[in-house]
């Protein structure tokens, strides 16, 4: 029988001390801050008309992907939806290539043909970047199927949101993953709003229990705490990797910005957003923890801030200097030439 459990407030400090060096802790801080600054820059560049179409920012959710990725091994597959910039950065994809894809330039990961929602990296085992809500879940389950078929010992980290969790194909995937004991770690990023619809208005019951009928264990985790995320990910990635089948991690998180850039923000109060930012910000709180526990000094953190500023500035410059795709690119990559 599946075990599902709802975690109370995180015990981050303890979780962190056990197995993580100061250097690793600083790398989480660095990765979260890079995502935050990258996304702020994306928002700014969108505002300047340099980025077109849809652009979904990850600000507020950084601890989820950084905590999960911290336990994955090179060769493990990662797949997510269209709110994907943070996942790419956490997978080690180059900020320049991501930003240049946002601006639709030839230096982008998809040569300018994918945009914000569609980027991939075979080298980093990042499989997108998918625009149809929930469709990445069976694909991620299929990546797990391929890992099991090949017997390569890898797992698939399949991310999806509280909106996708009501799609039928998610349950078709849960069923097959449980039936065939596929090494799939389902990471449910519950940022509380599916576009503008609050969780309570769209989803019955608790989300971490959505796999119970299939015998899939599920736990609820404080997704605003990178160490709580890491602790849960360590336990359940190991479970999944050991061949016992899939697991569901519901990450309780929060998106500060709109669903996309043109979000009327009528569905939640400014006070609600401000309260989360003030009390639960994953970066501010982790910064404080690093200082309080002596893993870092104000100066060493400032140095990281400066380093990130350079990376983001260079990415933005590259994304504007990289030329638009050659018109001949219109016709390439439709089919693989046999």
């Amino acid at each position: 029988m599946a075990t599902t459990k709802k975690l109370a407030a995180s015990s981050a400090g303890a979780a962190g001390k056990a197995d993580v060096s100061s250097a690793e802790l600083l790398s989480y801080y660095r990765d979260m801050l890079l995502i935050r600054r990258f996304e702020e820059k994306s928002g700014q560049m969108y505002g300047m008309g340099l980025i077109g179409g849809f652009c979904h920012l990850y600000i507020g959710q950084e601890a989820v992907v950084v905590g999960i990725q911290s336990v994955l091994q090179p060769g493990d597959s990662v797949i997510t939806s269209y709110r994907d910039h943070g996942h790419m950065i956490a997978c080690g994809m180059d900020s320049k290539g991501v930003m240049a894809e946002l601006t639709g330039r030839r230096g982008g990961y998809s040569k300018g043909k994918g945009g914000s929602m569609h980027m991939f990296s075979r080298e980093k085992s990042f499989y997108g970047g998918h625009g149809i809500v929930g469709a990445q879940v069976p694909i991620g389950t299929g990546l797990a199927f391929a890992h099991k078929y090949k017997g390569d010992g890898h797992i698939s980290a399949t991310y999806f949101g509280d909106g996708a969790v009501n799609q039928g194909q998610v349950y078709e995937s849960f069923n097959m993953a449980a039936l065939w004991k596929l090494p799939c770690l389902y990471v449910l990023e519950n940022n509380k709003y599916a576009m503008g619809t609050a969780q309570a208005r769209a989803a019955a019951g608790e989300l971490f229990q959505r796999g119970e009928a299939y015998g899939i264990p599920g736990v609820q985790v404080n997704g605003m705490d990178v160490l709580a995320v890491r602790a849960a990910a360590l336990e359940w990635a190991e479970y999944v990797r050991s061949g016992q089948g899939p697991a569901i991690l519901e990450m309780q998180t929060y998106r500060y910005r709109g669903h996309s850039m043109s979000d009327p923000a009528k569905y939640r109060s400014k006070e609600e957003v401000a309260k989360v930012r003030a009390e639960a910000d994953p970066i501010d709180n982790f910064r404080k923890l690093l200082l309080d526990q002596g893993h870092a000094t104000e100066d060493s953190l400032k140095e990281i801030d400066r380093e990130i500023k350079v990376i983001v500035t260079e990415a933005a410059e590259f994304a504007q200097q990289s030329p638009e795709p050659d018109p001949s690119e219109l016709w390439t990559d439709v089919l693989v030439e046999a």
């Binding site: 597959s77 797949i79 499989y127 469709a135 879940v137 069976p138 694909i139 991620g140 389950t141 299929g142 990546l143 797990a144 199927f145 391929a146 890992h147 078929y149 090949k150 698939s156 039928g168 194909q169 078709e172 995937s173 069923n175 097959m176 039936l179």
Partner: peptide
């Protein structure tokens, strides 16, 4: 199982996976 949407998507993932 009788889940065309799910197994078609799963097979696409398996193809991406080699």
């Amino acid at each position: 199982p009788i889940t065309e949407y799910g197994f078609a998507g799963l097979a696409v993932g398996a193809a991406f996976g080699g």
